[in-house]
Amino acid sequence: MISWDNFEYFVAPAALCWIAGAVLSVRQATRSRAALWTTVAGTLIFAVFIAGLWIMLSRPPLRTMGETRLWYSFFLSISGLITYWRWRYRWVLPFTTLLALVFCMINILKPEIHDQSLMPALQSPWFIPHVTVYMFSYSVLGCSFILSCIGLYRHKPEYLDTLDQLVYVGLAFLTLGMLSGAVWAKDAWGNYWSWDPKETWAAITWFGYLLYVHLRLMSGVSHRKLYWILILSFLTLQICWYGVNYLPSAQGSVHVYSQA
């Protein structure tokens, strides 16, 4: 039976594959097929755990913070792989692997309450698309964050073209997540938008990325400014995702489920 108790037994082989893929990709100047397949293997092992947990819980594992971290690690490995294969950045897999493993470690060291109950407000057809679309978007924007940090350290003009690609994909999924949330909120609470703290931080994040997209259409904007906007937007995204739970403004937020 797959459960959180044997999470380590899945993370360990997945981590080995991911690390092997990262090392292989860095060592070779061209695209490495070996890196591709080892990373895919790691992701598949991880997928088996998610699928098993889903069956075991008899509900989608998307509710607690621990469960969303699981999806984040999963999508991060996929986004990293796409970025590596599509734009041939040798250094991207080490970073996405590191980030994915950090989130796995948090789940091992600080497991949340993993019960089987799903409160009635979360029982909706919107639940799965809303959360998975967001997690995928976060992972793509995570890649843009890594690339921006590197660009700030050593700028190359082609980084901005790659960032455009990543941000357009990330923003598209961010929009899908936000709007599926709005439609769901109308069904659940009666309003599309009510400036709940989580919604407010989602809006800040969304406008941050929109700001980048529009600044890219202007001429004469310094690359440092663009990198900083992506870095700051990714930080507001972290506040939106889990940081709001610790903000004084979020006491009484309708979006806090994990303390149930």
Binding site: Q165, Y168, V169, L171, A172, F173, T175
Partner: peptide
């Protein structure tokens, strides 16, 4: 906006 988000993904950057 949902439709345009799909288009944003499919068509990519300007």
């Amino acid at each position: 906006m949902l439709l345009s988000a799909v288009a944003l993904f499919v068509k990519g950057p300007i």
